[in-house]
Each structure stands twice: as structure tokens, then as C-alpha cells.
């Protein structure tokens, strides 16, 4: 790793942070849904809504993040 490209390192670390959060954003709604099912007896709606939110929302957010990062990487952006 050369000394100067601090920006490259920054992207690496940011990717690490974003990746950890993205996984959490897909898994957490599902776990919260399952917990609500158990706590309030909402089965199967907690899991259904949680899984929908986690899958659709989480993946959509992941795509938006990737798109933003990609746009930033373009020359002249």
C-alpha cells in the first residue's frame, strides 16, 4: 500500500462499515418480526412483515448504497 492514497484506504474501511450494516439491515427486521410473533402471538404476520421489510428494504437499500458508491467512483463525479 502506497503512502499517499488515503482515499483508497478510506473507501476500503467505509465498505467494511457499510457491509456490516447492510447485513444487519436484512437480518434485523426478520429477527424483530420473529420476536414480535413470540411476544404478542402475531404469528405468522411478524415474520411475514419482517421478512418482506428485511428482504425488499434491505436489498433495495444495498442497491442504493452500491449505486451511490459507484457514482462517486466515476471520473468527474
Amino acid at each position: 500500500m502506497s503512502r499517499d492514497p488515503g482515499k483508497d484506504r478510506r473507501v476500503d474501511y467505509r465498505g467494511l462499515a457499510l457491509a456490516g450494516t447492510a447485513v444487519g439491515e436484512i437480518v434485523a427486521p426478520i429477527l424483530i418480526g420473529v420476536w414480535l410473533d413470540g411476544r404478542y402471538g402475531w404469528a405468522p404476520w411478524g415474520l411475514a412483515v419482517g421478512a418482506t421489510l428485511g428482504f425488499v428494504g434491505g436489498i433495495a437499500h444495498l442497491i442504493v448504497i452500491a449505486w451511490r458508491e459507484n457514482k462517486k467512483g466515476e471520473p468527474g463525479a
Binding site: A17, G20, T21, G24, E25, A28, P29, L53, V56, G57, G58, A60, H61, V64
Partner: peptide
């Protein structure tokens, strides 16, 4: 459909970041 879902996930994500 998508914007509200992502907004909800973004809010959730703010808490997830701290939890992580």
C-alpha cells in the same frame, strides 16, 4: 413502495450501526 421501505430501513440502520 421502495422509498418508504428504504427510509424505514435507514432509520433501523441508524440503530443497527450503534448496536453493531
Amino acid at each position: 413502495l421502495i422509498v418508504p421501505l428504504i427510509a424505514l430501513i435507514e432509520v433501523l440502520g441508524a440503530f443497527i450501526r450503534a448496536a453493531v
